[in-house]
């Protein structure tokens, strides 16, 4: 185990380095998150039986993956039962530094870029289970954060 601060500092440098490259960097960040999601999902499910259905996979994301990344579970999961899932986190840790001054649009825009990383991790993890999807963040009420997962198959 390592200090969460070590990871946080490293993550900040990685994201700053990439976002300084503009659109291109956002694309790279998305790709890095996606690949990490695949690898993490493979590692976390190595010793467990196959999932029965998509809901079980989403629950794995909300519990196991969330605990691994953010040291807690998703606070609330909602679904329309037609392939849309909304994961609500009441205090999302990876954008903590934006939360205090999140009233302005420019700060929200910056936070939105930061969320490319966790959204891509979630998408990567789901894709490794054969569940292609899009993941859309909503930060209109920071530090609360919603992630809308839409299955595309």
């Amino acid at each position: 185990e390592v200090a969460e601060a070590s990871f946080a500092f490293l993550q900040i440098e990685l994201i700053n380095y990439l976002l300084a490259q503009g659109e291109d960097g956002v694309r790279k960040l998305d790709n890095i998150g996606y690949q990490m999601g695949i690898r993490l999902a493979e590692r976390l499910t190595r010793d467990r039986p196959r999932f029965a259905d998509n809901l079980e996979i989403i629950k794995f994301i909300c519990k196991d993956l969330w605990s691994y990344l953010f040291r807690k579970q998703v606070d609330k999961l909602q679904t329309n039962h037609r392939g849309v899932f909304v994961l609500a986190d009441s205090n999302f840790p990876w954008i903590g530094s934006f939360s205090s001054s999140a009233s302005s649009d420019s700060v929200k825009e910056a936070a939105q870029d930061w969320l490319v990383f966790p959204c891509a991790i979630i998408r990567g993890a789901l894709s490794s289970f054969g569940v292609p999807c899009t993941v859309q963040p909503d930060i209109s009420a920071l530090p609360r954060c919603w992630f809308t997962v839409r299955l595309t198959k």
Partner: peptide
């Protein structure tokens, strides 16, 4: 009050940075 994460997460993130 030190919070911890799995060292694998740090290693994967660092690996992604070096690769990039």
């Amino acid at each position: 009050k030190i919070e911890h994460v799995n060292s694998e997460l740090l290693a994967l993130t660092y690996g992604a940075l070096v690769t990039q």
